[in-house]
Amino acid sequence: MKLRLKIVSGFLVMAIMLILAGIWSIYELNNIGVTAQNLIKENYQSIHAANTMLNALEGEDNGILFLLLGRWEEGRRLLSSSDSLFLSGFDVAKNNLTIPGEAAVVDSIRTRYAALKAIWEKPIVETYKERNIDWYFIEVHRAFQDAKSAVQALQILNNDTMYQTATVMENRANRAIMPGIIAMTAAVVLSLLFNFFINHYVVNPILRLNRGIRNHLDDHKPLEIEVETHDEIRELSNLILTLSARSARRD
């Protein structure tokens, strides 16, 4: 193989490795960005909606308790505002179905909330239900807990998915960094090897050529040049030997 090709190919292989490592790292980093964005959009929104719904349910529970104590105005006001808050949270959750099984969980929230709402929509003040703790614990509290656990199920589902996605992101980050580290390490090792080969197959033969010619000229020793490779340096050494032989014949 020709000398120029040897030297060029040495640099070329290092360049290819670094370029490919760079492309792959950029691809993986881009994926990390997309995954992080989806994480916020898909999971965090649902978790926030679940928190909103939980706060709303607590508010409704307080509202029912107000009604139980005969305080109709405060109770209804709280129930109305909590209901709006819950429905706003629920809207976000139902329009953000991204995880397998999430639709079933949202359906369950809808059903259980409807059951709870059916309880407080009917009159409470000035009925048998007013100041009736037994009624509260048997009907209201159970429906409240059912609705709350359905919302918590949504929260847990999204939390678990976030954790899994975070693990995937960690792996992706590792995969983004690793090719670069490997390429850099390989490039360092290759450059050391390249340096060794250039020394052994280019520099040393030239130095031997130099030494051989100098010994021949100064000390009249026979011209001895040893070149291992089959490239321009061997060609040069052969030409020098031929030149020396012709010169010797003329003499």
Partner: peptide, 23 residues
């Protein structure tokens, strides 16, 4: 796929490198 191809490339480069220089 990508990581196997990349590993093959690195192994191949280290393997072919001496073939360029060493007779």
């Amino acid at each position: 796929l990508t990581l196997l191809l990349y590993s093959a490339m690195v192994a191949g480069i280290f393997g072919i490198f001496p073939m360029i220089f060493v007779p």
